[in-house]
Structure formats: structure tokens, C-alpha cells
Simulated scan of single mutants.
Amino acid sequence: MALTVMTYNIRNGGRDSRGSRLDAITEVVTAHRPDVLALQELAHFPRDGGRRLRQLADAVGMRPHLVRSWLGGQPVAVLVRNAAAVISTGRIRRPFHHAAAEVTVATDRGPLTVISTHLYPFSGGRRRWEARWLAPRADRERMVLLMGDLNSLDPWTDHTERLRALAPQHRSRHLRRGGDVDTRAVQVLADAGFVDLCRQVGAADHTVPTGYAGHEFSRMRLDYILGTEPVARLVRSCRVGSGGAAETASDHYPVVASLDLTVG
């Protein structure tokens, strides 16, 4: 059993002053045909009885589970292609600026829990706290995927040049007091036992900006697919989905990974 998983920040609900980008977003998702999809920045999706969410979910042939923010941030969601495989749905009940949705699905290797989240963009200290709320999910005996826009640089890369290219007001989001690069959110999750799947297969490319927008970015990796050790042993590929419609659908590229869940 092969399972394709994908995370995608679609920027402000796929709509802004230029109009709707939902058709382009649908094209991106359809091109990768994920079995499980984590979405972030779903502004306006709960309105009109969730019409916009249903429109996207129906277009890509998936069943959605959306979680709203308690603090006025944007909703996140997990979408699943095989609705019959869903065991449970829920939210991580902490005061995230955005939210964290949690869905568990049945696979040939047992239950797989998938979390979609979007960490705080403006403060590394706040991101670290939100990462700490997620860290207990890193059960080394269970299959858990943590996917989303973590808004954090990783602790394994030299970020000097990409930070130098940013305007000071945007650079400050990624610096600690004293000027050190702030990678604490990803480090907290790694220390808890989550594995960076793209890094594991040597495909840790930048996820922002795209051709659409992103003046606050400079070829940075902010979107991740992390997994516990039982998941990391099964990853076969992980890549950033650049090119085509992804250049104009959002200011983030999607990240896509393939897991081999074959038994025997």
C-alpha cells in the first residue's frame, strides 16, 4: 500500500484582491493526487456553511476535516481521499494562533495520525511554545505525521545568506535576541522524536516564495512533513512541488511525500 501525503499553505483562503485562486489550487492538488492533504490559511472557508471548503474538497475528491482558530487566526484542515478509512477526528486543544487539526486513518500497517498545523509567524518564542504543545504527539511507538507551515527555519542549515536578503522587519521574525538564528520550533519537534522526512531523503528545498508573491521570504523552507520513527522508516520520497500552477496558486509551494505501507 502506497500512501501519498501533502501539505499546502494556500494563502488567505485562496482569495485576495486579485480574485480567487481556487481553480489553480485545485489544479496543484489534483496534479499530486494526495491520499491525505494538510491545508493551512483557510480564511473564509467556514463561511456560508463551509461552501468554499466543500467546493475544494469535492473538486479534488476528498473528505475534509476543518478546525478553526480560537484566537482569530486562520483555520487549518486535513482532507482524506478514502473517507471510510477515517477512525477519528479532532483538534489539539491549545491556544494556537491558528490551529492544529488531527485525523487518524486506518492503514495496512495500523493507525496513522495526521496533524495539520500553522505556527505563529511573527515571534520565535511563541512558535517554540506552540511546538511544545505539539511535541507530546511524537510517540516513538506510533505512526504520526506532523505537516504544515511551521514558519521556522531548520537547525541543520546555514541560513546566513537568505536572512541577509530579507528586509529588517522580516528578518527579525527569524532571529533571537542577540542576533542568533531562531530555529527553536523545529528543534523542539526534532528533540521530541519527529524526523524531517525531506531532509532524510536529501530533498530539503525551499518552499517560499513562489512566482505569485512573497516579499517577506527569500528562498526559505518553512513548510515541513515530519514523522515519528515508524513513519520515517517507510518514506520513499519527499519533494517540493514547484512548477506549473504552483507558481501562481499561492506564495507557498506544496510539499509531497510518498510512504510505502506494504506489509510483508
Rank of each mutant, 00 (worst) to 15 (best):
V181Q: 14
P168T: 04
T104N: 01
A245M: 13
H44K: 11
T157Y: 15
I225D: 13
A138T: 01
A85Q: 06
G50W: 04
H97T: 15
H44F: 10
A165R: 12
R239W: 11
R109T: 06
Q55K: 07
V263D: 04
V114Q: 03
E161R: 13
E41A: 07
V231S: 08
A192E: 01
L163D: 11
L37V: 00
I10D: 01
R199E: 13
D58N: 09
D260S: 02
G125W: 11
V144Y: 08
T113H: 08
V28Q: 05
H98M: 09
A165E: 09
M1G: 09
N151I: 13
G193K: 09
A204C: 11
S172N: 10
G14L: 05
P209W: 02
H65F: 10
E247K: 11
E102G: 04
G72A: 12
S69Q: 12
S116C: 10
S152T: 13
L222V: 01
S250N: 01
A213M: 05
A84Y: 06
R109I: 03
R184Y: 12
G244H: 10
V67T: 10
Y120G: 08
T26N: 11
G14R: 02
P111K: 14
I10K: 03
P136A: 07
L197V: 10
A167P: 02
G202T: 05
T262H: 02
E141D: 14
V76F: 10
R140L: 02
H44R: 14
S258H: 13
V256I: 10
R137D: 03
A167L: 12
T7Y: 04
G14S: 05
R173V: 03
H159S: 10
L112Q: 02
H159L: 09
Y224G: 06
Y8N: 01
L163W: 09
F45V: 11
N9C: 03
R132F: 00
G14Y: 05
A246W: 03
T207Q: 03
D260P: 00
G110I: 10
V181E: 14
P64G: 14
V263G: 06
L234D: 10
T4R: 15
I225M: 09
R81Q: 02
R126H: 13
T207R: 01
T117V: 11
M220L: 15
D158S: 14
Q55Y: 08
I10F: 03
A101W: 08
V201Y: 05
H97I: 13
R68S: 12
L79A: 09
L163V: 09
V201A: 05
H215Y: 08
L163E: 10
R199K: 14
V60F: 07
M143A: 15
G49V: 14
H174M: 07
T183H: 15
E27F: 04
D16C: 07
M1T: 13
V208M: 02
V188R: 06
A257I: 01
F96K: 13
L163H: 09
L222K: 00
V78N: 01
E161M: 09
L56K: 00
L66M: 15
D48A: 12
C198P: 00
M6D: 03
L22N: 01
S88H: 08
F194Y: 13
D16W: 06
R140E: 08
R132V: 00
G14A: 04
S218V: 14
R164A: 14
R51A: 15
D23T: 12
